[in-house]
Design a protein around this nucleic acid. Structure first.
Length: 333
DNA sequence: TTGTGTTTTATTGCCTCC
DNA sequence: GGAGGCAATAAAACACAA
């Protein structure tokens, strides 16, 4: 704070320093000890502020000779007459708001630069008919307000991004359920077909899908498959529900470290990867021709697997053209 | 007019930097 | 160690509904 040093000097007592004593005149604290340059500048009569400075004139904003009456812009708006003026001058100090013009001037200055160098502070104070300390305090408070606003904006943005991710995740869950149902249906048909063929005295085939229908589709590595051109998709139920990172393999070429993502601390197991299931050739053939995405990606956040960023530039999470399904507003990695 | 919530001005204490 | 920044807070000023 530019005026903090002065504040230390002026300071004293509780925050109720305002209005404490008659010795205080219009926010001009009497220095306890030696005077700082600022206190020298503001000491004594207000005539120190008379006249315009070399800066952009506050009169341009105030539209008059307001600067000749420092501290009294508010008064100008409220009172008239020398008597009232005198009463005002001698009344005990009260916290006084800056005039609209003063605030506008300060706002413009803040837009240019939100930090206040000592020289600028003095010049601004001179132009506005304020104490440099007041200008410094105004800038300090203004920075605090700006920061609060910025935090609100950031929060809104993050919340929006979260909602988008959540919606994507829920869509993905629905998609997954549909596909699981389809797999069950087709497996049923296949088993039925096998059974009828088996009845015609053909030797029974060994078929991986002869697993019981009740079993969940399982993600297995496609690396054992001869055909690596068509990675397939499957998903263990618990992978989505339990939050355990069983499917995460840091050696996977699709492993991406998102430890710098805003969602977690470095070192957390936040990662997304394409999962290649190790299933039979028949399944693979079928699935590779189906609507399933050629690659699928999950973003693991805490205990929940969220859909991750598109695996390719042309497809979104669902293997659909990206244009067909707006992705979240951001992928900050 | 009054009670209440919000905004603005100002203070205090702690921290960092030089 | 002084200067200046920030967070937390107090308190005056203001807005506004009842």
């Amino acid at each position: 704070m530019a005026g903090a040093g002065v504040g230390r000097v002026f300071g004293g007592g509780s925050s109720g320093g305002v209005g404490v004593g008659a010795s205080l005149l219009f926010n001009q604290r009497v220095p306890r000890s030696s005077q700082s340059p600022e206190s020298l500048f503001i000491s004594g009569s207000t005539s120190n502020f008379l006249g315009s400075s070399s800066m952009v004139s506050f009169e341009d904003v105030c539209g008059g000779k307001r600067s000749e009456r420092p501290f009294f812009c508010t008064y100008d708006q409220e009172e008239n007459g020398d008597e009232d003026y005198d009463d005002y001058f001698h009344q005990p100090e009260k916290k006084r708001r800056l005039t609209v013009e003063q605030v506008q001037f300060l706002e413009k200055s803040f837009e240019v630069e939100n930090k206040l160098e000592p020289e600028r502070k003095v010049l601004l104070a001179k132009d506005l008919g304020l104490q440099p300390r007041q200008v410094a305090i105004w800038f300090q408070n203004r920075r605090a307000r700006w920061k609060t606003k910025q935090l609100e904006k950031d929060f809104d943005s993050l919340q929006s991004n979260f909602n988008n991710l959540k919606a994507d995740y829920e869509n993905l869950l629905q998609e997954k359920e549909k596909l699981q149902a389809e797999v069950v249906n087709l497996t049923d048909k296949l088993l039925l077909k096998e059974k009828t063929e088996g009845d015609q005295s053909e030797p029974p085939k060994t078929y991986a899908a002869s697993k019981t229908v009740q079993e969940e589709p399982v993600i297995e590595s496609a690396s054992e498959s001869e055909d690596h051109l068509a990675p397939v998709f499957g998903c263990k139920q618990e992978d989505l529900s339990s939050g355990k990172s069983d499917i995460i393999d840091s050696d996977s070429p699709h492993y991406v470290d998102v430890s710098h993502s805003p969602f977690g601390e470095p070192g957390d197991s936040y990662a997304f990867e394409a999962d290649h299931s190790d299933i039979s050739q028949d399944d693979e053939d079928y699935l590779s021709k189906s609507l399933l995405p050629s690659s699928h990606v999950f973003l693991k956040i805490g205990d929940v697997d969220y859909p991750g960023p598109p695996a390719t530039s042309s497809c979104n999470n669902y293997g659909l053209p990206a244009d067909d399904h707006p992705s979240p507003l951001f992928w900050p990695y």
